[in-house]
Design a protein around this nucleic acid. Sequence first.
RNA 1: GGAGAGAUGGCCGAGCGGUCGAAGGCGCACGCCUGGAAAGCGUGUAGGCUCCAAAAGGGUCUCAAGGGUUCGAAUCCCUUUCUCUCCGCCA
Length: 425
Amino acid sequence: MLDPKYVREHQAEVRKALEDCKSKVDLSLYLDLERRRRDLMVSADKRKARLNQASEEMSRLKKEGKDITEYRSKLSELSNEIKTVDAEITAVEKDFHEIELQICNLPHESVPVGGEEANKEVRRVGEPKKFDFKPKPHEELGLTLGILDFEKAAKVAGTRFFSLAGLGAKLERALVNFMLDQNSQKGYQEMVVPHLVNYESMETSGQFPKFIEQAFAIEKDKLYLIPTSEVPLANLHRGETFPAGSIPKKYTAYTPCYRREAGSYGKDTKGLIRLHQFNKVEMFQFVEPEKSMEALDQLTADAEDLLKKLGLPYRVVVLATGDKSFSSVKTYDLEVWLPSQNTYREISSCSNCTDFQARRGAIKFKREGGAKAELVHTLNGSGLAIGRTWLAILENYQQADGTVLVPDALQPYMGGLKMIVPAKP
RNA sequence: GGAGAGAUGGCCGAGCGGUCGAAGGCGCACGCCUGGAAAGCGUGUAGGCUCCAAAAGGGUCUCAAGGGUUCGAAUCCCUUUCUCUCCGCCA
């Protein structure tokens, strides 16, 4: 959500930014409603002031034992007028809020303008390994090794679900533990959070109302399965004010993520790339406004560090205005090298949401000696998507015979295991 | 799931339908006092929206949330949410 006052005073700039984001929001309507809301409020407040004055008067008259019948009926009229205006305000506010929630965050000046094609590679780290055989896709490796199974998952739940067995499951858990340990060492507090959240939480983090179709819903209980732990983490401090000196606050959490993937039929139908359920370790930060751009670089570096330690080649891409996420001003995607696809694929997304989520959720902080509470800035980043890391390891560490080496950093988490070999039938 | 109790300012806690944004206490801040501190005394101590170019100042809203009764609601009525106690069920 944007600051209406800012929008009002920087119309040209906002209009351009919304175009760059391919937003379809009608800014004129937004401004018009905002204007009407204030006008109505002034008119209602004037009447309320009169009523309040009269009310005091009335109380005095009554004490003096005077007759107030006539006076009362006069006020009744005023009272009704107020109710009418208030109803108008409510209606205008509802319309305004509806639009307001549809507006994306304005891109940072450093973000390239354009759609997906304008995304810009920032750096490449690590050399893709040269194989002296044709590298196999992970779904094939996993199947042969007997550690990955989609058929069983499809029977249990449907398409776009997966199941892991034996060392496959163990590798998944090793990655979770490895990442949580690493993040903890970097000052992120480890958290366990709800996987089902209410509507408000989805609204605060920016999923709702725009992306409501993408969420799995438990209608009976009005709860939603989280698409990322960003949602519960962002909402931990909803409606709160951080006392002076208590931010930056950094959290990390491991949760499954549930996504309907509506409209992605036919995309990435094979393997672990795109699923209705996957695991992820997330990083989240609440920081002071002037420090958030710097924090984004640090957060991205923290995510990169995990890939470096796992020995996976990757590149960093800054997403263009039309491709960045709804709530963010700037997003870096980390893309890991996949030998079987001969390309880089997203494995992490790190965003600075500035005060966008904070305004939706009224998340504030106080400065040392500062009088007024201000909105915090929030940042989130995957550190990392576990499923995609799992498959990247299989593909990058595969050997000609179909076995897979365990990266050094993970061996302590795999009971010292150095290689994944086919399971005994 | 059944029965009951409750939700007031940073915290505790009062509050006959009118002068209550709300007594009192604690905490906190500042000042006085002191060689310094404690105690004591004094003063102050919510947030949102809005008017004004801005400051000063003004208006309005907020006593869990939403609705209702009323000229007027923290106070009465309804709904919802949350918390607590007991019973049942349960990893």
